[in-house]
Design a protein around this nucleic acid. Structure first.
Lengths: 343, 343
DNA sequence: CCAACGTAGTCACACGTGTGCATACATGCC
DNA sequence: GGCATGTATGCACACGTGTGACTACGTTGG
């Protein structure tokens, strides 16, 4: 009950109170079989009364592990990222790991700085989302043996351990859906920052067109920025074309949100005038007007899988494969047959 | 250039390579004036070549500080929370602090567990958002001297250091805006989880009504959950009333989003049939159809202020006041005069 | 009764870094 | 030349915890 006002009690304070050596206290608190159960419980009681809490810092120094993982994200303010991190955090917490969070702001220099900071702090493992840095992580991995898992990796260089969504197949499904509705002029609004995932979604888009015998038209592929603002601008470009598209597939839901805004502002209707498909299935896709057809990513699950992969690596298993999670088309209200067909 | 494959080099390895004691290495790397500039730069070169990085955990053990802060949030998947954390992270990073992130899932037991975990790890400071725990933080503060800053605190008990939005004034402005447009039947959709902020926004709502001589009607105050789903359900209740409201003020934008969804589904129009006001000004408020009138919280700034307050406390300043940030009404397209008046 | 043995606890060291104090050496002054 | 002064470096300890090796003691078996 007697709280130490000045400094929190150390293991030696407890040893003194219990009239034993600090070694015995250490063993008693870790339930070692080397200590008499009666004195063990006595010590535990004393420690509890004194409000003793073992220092994780000191323990880490001797055990050489911190029960800590580092997570690097572009920005946590991105709803997609936030959900992935939530999944990571959930699994980490269950296993008594604490997570460091750092934003890289899509600056590879900051990303490297963050990873170095993690290394200094002796994190047991690192998860990097949407990384743009290729070889760094391998170097780090080989030098200091810190396991690294990449989720939604944006660098083409294959990484030993990563969790990815099946972009090609997902976007293929989305575009195929539009084709089946009767669309032929289908646009794609890219993300000029999403290197790998954007390229893969473009691949799926082209594959679907080719498979249906629709010729690829360069003017129908325009650039956004993966955010709503970029979607608006890109959509305006598309609407200004001589022969505008009847359907638009967007890199992600945020882009689609901006596109939708632009279409509304031009007094056009979705899906009557233009069909719209997103990617990610953010919660918001269910609350747009009309509800957004999109390709679902199991975001939270991606985070969980990444953390579980990392746990395996940290426990010494080295035979862990990369994981590729299937995407699922979710048809809602923003897609319909084009006017020509429906009339 | 010779990379150590097995274990990262320690300060003693560098000392051996430079043929000096580890003390000299330590001083050289911290640019102490006690060491000859020439040997200092020689040592620095050797350390760089060996890829030496000082262990933060060993340093923390002796310096008694970790340059680490803990952040507890309800869930990072909430867009409001994510932006606050982004602000915290930005300032922390500038000052070379790393941040631990933990979700409490609105479970006060988990919140306490998280704070204890932080204490074990010797964090230099703690930020808790939307805390539901009252006295714990004072106890922790008085016992272990770890500075705690509360942002958007949900417990009525006044805390020594907190960052809050001016809820009463913000919601008063919002409701006053509706009254000036001619509305008399104005509903409020509450949040059954937001103890303090919800109570304050209700207070502002009632104050505005009273000031305008509008009698408070109990049936016009219904409960949501602070999320879109709850907003939908609550709105349905309001539309089912014998004399439904002509305007609805929502606890936050997410609630408003759900309400908007419900109104659309009932084939009614915003703002022609019903005016709608949110709170927070999430980015999404600019991308709904119609754009949402709302009360802006400077979310990122709240996080920055919280971190700056914490920095002051950690540096020993104890005369830090609580901060109260003004909210700002942002009028967009979801509010208009009621039908009776406009016709 | 003594040796062998198991049990409960202590001693001492390690983890990697920072720092007060002592020391060795060079320099300057009387 | 001896002494005070200053400078560059090494020694030893501290931070708080975990653990292998060792010891003291009580018990058992021959």
């Amino acid at each position: 009950m007697q709280a130490h006002r000045t400094k929190p009690p150390t293991i030696k304070d407890i040893a003194r109170l219990a009239s034993v050596s600090h070694s015995t206290v250490s063993r008693a608190l870790r339930n070692s079989s080397l200590v008499d159960p009666k004195t063990a419980s006595r010590i535990q009681q004393i420690a509890r009364d004194a409000g003793y809490r073992a220092s994780a810092v000191a323990r880490s120094l001797v055990t050489q592990e911190t029960r800590t993982v580092g997570v690097v994200v572009t920005t946590i303010a991105d709803p997609f990222v936030a959900e992935v991190v939530s999944g990571i955090e959930e699994v980490a917490n269950q296993r008594c790991y604490s997570v460091f969070l750092t934003e890289s702001k899509t600056d590879s220099e900051l990303e490297i700085k963050a990873v170095h900071s993690f290394a200094d702090r002796w994190v047991d493992g690192i998860i990097v989302t949407s990384s743009r840095v290729g070889s760094l992580h391998f170097k780090l991995l080989s030098e200091t043996k810190v396991p690294v898992v990449l989720v939604n990796n944006q660098h083409s260089e294959a990484s030993p351990h990563s969790v990815m969504i099946q972009n090609v197949e997902g976007s293929r499904q989305a575009v195929q859906h539009l084709i089946r509705l009767g669309h032929r002029r289908i646009a794609y609004i890219r993300d000029r920052f999403g290197y790998q995932s954007d390229a893969e979604r473009l691949t799926g888009y082209r594959a679907a067109l080719r498979h249906a015998g629709v010729t690829f038209s360069k003017e129908l592929v325009v650039y956004g920025d993966g955010k709503a603002e970029g979607g608006m601008v890109a959509m305006r470009t598309l609407l200004g074309l001589q022969d505008p598209p009847t359907a638009v597939f967007c890199y992600n839901d945020m882009t689609a949100l901006g596109a939708l805004r632009c279409i509304h502002d031009e007094r056009l209707q979705v899906p009557q005038d233009i069909s719209l498909v997103g990617f990610d299935d953010l919660f918001i896709a269910s609350y747009t007007h009309p509800r957004l057809t999109t390709v679902r990513q199991p975001k939270r699950q991606l985070g969980q899988l990444a953390m579980e992969t990392l746990l395996k690596l940290m426990s010494g298993q080295d035979s862990v494969d990369s994981i590729s999670v299937p995407a699922e088309l979710v048809v809602r209200e923003s897609t319909a047959p084009p006017r020509e067909v429906s009339e």
